[in-house]
């Protein structure tokens, strides 16, 4: 196993608000790391920091061994990072095919290579092919999520960050999405999956990181003991005692 993305002591937030504090993270080739934590814990903010959308106030990010901390967001996709934001943020007024072609942009392909890359995406999701000329926003929620993920895959990423891909999808579709994520892992991608639902997340994960109040409070392989600890973080503690409890669970590293 080799680390594709390494975050070291990352703090980030918005303007005067530091949301994520001093988080370490290491994403390995061919593994799924899930990032858990209740909302407001800083999961999305961390992903935004990793992908360059938010600037880091401390720490560094290395992608394939290269320091990318100071790089602007638009250069990271070319270096192999793809971030699929939550809420199916695709280009709703563009057609399905146009969305996929935009996804090919970071890979710097020729026109012909773009066609074959798009064709490969259609092979993975035949339903998209039949709707290739429809406006992306007119498709169902699950199909939109497929577009979002395919779009990211078209850029030939090494790391894929997925922010709550199962949100708002029917349970059967969620199962499909999780299956797809496993496939991608098996193809060698390093996947960071942001989830709120402990269940889905722990089942699919090779490794689990839990954030609470912006700090990484757990970092371990999935296990029943882990579920215990996560539940503690989610509901078990009285307000105002985060720090103590966080240390209690410790960092098994």
């Amino acid at each position: 196993m080799s680390a594709v993305l390494v975050a070291d002591g990352v703090s980030t937030g918005y303007r005067d608000l530091t949301v994520v504090r001093d988080v370490d993270l290491s994403l390995q080739r061919g593994t799924i790391t899930t990032l858990l934590g209740r909302n407001g814990a800083g999961k999305t903010t961390l992903a935004r920091g990793l992908s360059g959308l938010n600037t880091l106030s401390t720490g560094s990010v290395a992608l394939l061994g290269e320091d990318v901390t100071k790089l602007p967001a638009h250069l990271l996709p070319k270096r192999g990072l793809a971030f699929v934001q939550e809420g199916k943020r695709i280009f709703r007024e563009l057609s399905v095919e146009e969305n996929l072609r935009i996804g090919c942009h970071p890979a710097g392909l020729t026109r012909r290579e773009v066609e074959s890359r798009v064709a490969a995406a259609y092979d993975r999701f035949p339903i998209l092919k039949s709707k290739r000329h429809h406006a992306a926003g007119s498709l169902s929620g699950g199909q939109q999520q497929m577009i979002g993920i395919s779009q990211a895959l078209c850029g030939d990423p090494k790391v894929l960050i997925l922010d709550e891909p199962s949100t708002g999808l029917a349970p059967s579709i969620v199962a499909q999405v999780l299956e797809l994520i496993r496939e991608l892992r098996d193809e060698g991608l390093a996947v960071l999956l942001i989830e709120q639902s402990v269940d889905a997340a722990v089942d699919v994960a090779d490794h689990v990181v839990v954030l609470d109040v912006g700090r990484s409070v757990l970092d371990a392989p999935p296990s029943d003991a882990l579920r215990h600890a996560i539940r503690d973080i989610y509901v078990g503690r009285p307000v105002g005692a985060t720090d103590g409890a966080g240390k209690e669970t410790g960092k098994p590293r």
Binding site: S197, V198, D199, V202, R227, I230, R231
Partner: peptide, 13 residues
């Protein structure tokens, strides 16, 4: 517990 916290949590509860 199942929807929001996951199956694992239920056992603990």
């Amino acid at each position: 517990i199942e929807k929001y916290l996951g199956r694992g949590a239920m056992g603990i509860e």
